[in-house]
Design a binder for these strands. Structure first.
Lengths: 147, 147
DNA sequence: GATTGACTTAAAGTTAACTTTAACTTTTAT
DNA sequence: ATAAAAGTTAAAGTTAACTTTAAGTCAATC
């Protein structure tokens, strides 16, 4: 255990990352992060876990489940700071996912706007203003806003 | 109960909207939708509930909780098809929310790209590649990707 | 040494959004 | 009339992502 400043207690790590200690224990149980143990069985997290936890938080903000994040983190090294190449490999996937999310939300926003601003040329075609639901053959659910 | 084609059984409604009957019962319990009852105590949903359920589904895709949706739907009429004005009132709020979501995701994606593509001029300033975590004073969590 | 704060564990609890179960009634089709 | 399908209810169950509890040990400080 060379250099105590490379290792932090669970409380220090939690504070540093803005998560609860219980969450850190939970993540470790799920295999997402790892710790060493000192003679009193207290955890010691390597500094590289800060970055790893940050990556978990980013992935969560993308809507990934912990299981999915665990899969993705399989491509990162456990015990050292990820290199640039490591990060590239991971974030390429996530950028695709982000692009898709942005596209869907943009389309949804545009469809909202279009129907509001009289962008629609036909009351028959505009399903939102089709009060008799004539377009029932289009399929179940609010197709008109997602398609 | 004029015009049986204005009312649908729970099965018909579920199929039409692409949701489960159990979800409809759940939403009704939560007060999000409403039904009439026939002599056998079977539910009958007015056609306007199709649109209302569609709105619920849209709001869910925005990440709103059912409680939040219930609040928002308070501004819509229960027993008739919402007018254009009704819809405008509701969707203005949601468009703001969509804009914010899109902005956050776009910023996140741009930060990912910037760091990958050597957009960063300083290894000290680029927190992602600051392996000794010198920027610890920036606050807890992955600030660099959200700010 | 004594006290307080930080740590440990396993297991139970919380929350939201449903789904399933069990036991029944009603409706539909033959 | 009968059988199958569709409907009813209350309550229990599921899931993911945690948090809290209960009961203890360890570490730091006086």
């Amino acid at each position: 255990m060379t250099g105590s400043s490379n290792y932090m207690t669970i409380g220090e790590t939690a504070k540093r990352c803005g998560v609860a200690t219980s969450a850190l224990r939970f993540y470790e149980q799920k295999g997402l992060i790892h710790s060493a143990r000192v003679s009193g069985n207290h955890r010691r997290y390597h500094r590289s876990m800060i970055r790893r936890i940050a990556v978990i938080q980013v992935a969560q903000s993308l809507g990934l489940s912990l299981a999915e994040i665990n899969d993705a983190l399989g491509s990162l090294p456990d015990q050292r700071t990820p290199t640039k190449k490591d990060w590239e490999r991971l974030s390429a996937d996530w950028r695709d996912r982000l692009d898709q999310r942005i596209n869907i939300l943009t389309k949804l926003r545009d469809n909202l706007s279009g129907c509001i601003g009289c962008g629609c040329l036909s009351l028959r075609r505009c399903k939102l203003y089709n009060p008799d639901d004539i377009a029932a053959e289009s399929g179940a659910g609010p197709r008109f806003l997602f398609d």
